[in-house]
Design a protein around this nucleic acid. Structure first.
Lengths: 190, 190
DNA sequence: GATTTTTTAGGATGCGTGTCCTAATATTAA
DNA sequence: TTAATATTAGGACACGCATCCTAAAAAATC
């Protein structure tokens, strides 16, 4: 099946372009140029542009789930796992400086467009949210686990937005350090 | 001069629409419908769509400057003034729940579009940043005043993004309370 | 090698867009 | 009232867009 292969290429290219240029501002031509495929050939793989968006979101969900699963292996303690989350800002620093947070910018754009896939994009946030919540529960904070998860999500989100606006890498490092301090000071050592 | 009047109407309508729908997604027709003006008449007031954007940004700068000046009067202490900033999230809660932060979402969009007015939009952030910095200096934190300003900006930004994604008003209230606590606990009482 | 199926290329179509032009109307000045 | 100017309306224009169609090419099957 060659179909699946080119389909994957399309999704991958669209994923990048949607992140870098935004969904609406990315045209079929942009994607076909990136994949080196004729524009007309698209319809064979995807009926509409919205379908590509759904495929991209779905792919991001899978990738995120795998990443979270990996963190479960990397970090032996809940603190360590949460720290993995905090440190994505550093791992993806360059991209974030240029294009912001992929989750935040997409949900924001789709909200403005009042797009049908708005909620599906939000599910990406929910994925992180519930995962973080679980970690905080493991830390014995079951009462406010969700609040803490939202708090951390919001801080990461804000850091990405500001760092991107001012193209300030140092700011990312500072805030990541602060969040780690917050995590260690605030949480009970076990 | 009737010209100035309709020009102001155009800028006001464009301001709202750019906020609610995004810059790119708002067409000349959208604006002319809102202002009740023929589409062709636009060119008499603005040469290009980009010119409208510049005018909108400029208007927002003026409005922001006035708001900051007002806060200088409202809050007798630097803490009080900073608290004014934190509480915009509550003042504009409904709009934020629906459309996010006007500054953050615009700069994010223009960054993706690689738009010429990107930097001018960022100046809105800088306006808040330097104003907050001044307040922290007045509090005797001249060494890390800018860091604190950026920290607070980022947190507000993150709160707006998450609250909008999850349409969660309670989250705004919680985080605003936390930021006020942080401000009062962290800062020296005088 | 022949035939069927899968995959592709490239252009046609209709629509919305920003932009621009020109003639009509309203407003002001003489 | 008349003449000059300021403001408007509405349509023309070229372009890019998502979409759709059809015939050619490639691949797979027999």
């Amino acid at each position: 099946m060659k179909k699946q292969k080119t389909r994957d290429h399309i999704v991958e290219a669209a994923d990048q372009l949607f992140y870098q240029q935004g969904y609406e501002h990315t045209s079929f031509t942009d994607i076909s140029d990136a994949v080196q495929i004729s524009r007309g050939n698209f319809y064979y793989h995807f009926k509409t542009k919205d379908d590509i968006l759904d495929a991209v979101i779905s792919a991001r969900m899978d990738k995120t789930r795998k990443m979270l699963a990996q963190w479960e292996l990397d970090g032996s303690t809940p603190q360590g796992r949460i720290e993995c989350f905090i440190r994505i800002l550093i791992t993806n620093r360059d991209k974030i400086l240029n294009y912001g947070c992929p989750v935040g910018t997409l949900t924001t754009e789709l909200a403005k467009l009042n797009h049908a896939s708005r909620e599906e994009a939000n599910a990406l946030f929910t994925l992180f949210r519930t995962w973080l919540e679980e970690q905080f529960i493991l830390l014995g904070r079951s009462k406010d686990a969700d609040d803490l998860a939202m708090h951390l999500l919001a801080r990461s989100q804000g850091v990405a937005t500001l760092a991107s606006a001012f193209h300030d890498a140092k700011f990312i490092d500072q805030e990541v350090a602060q969040m780690c301090d917050w995590l260690n000071a605030y949480m009970p050592k076990e």
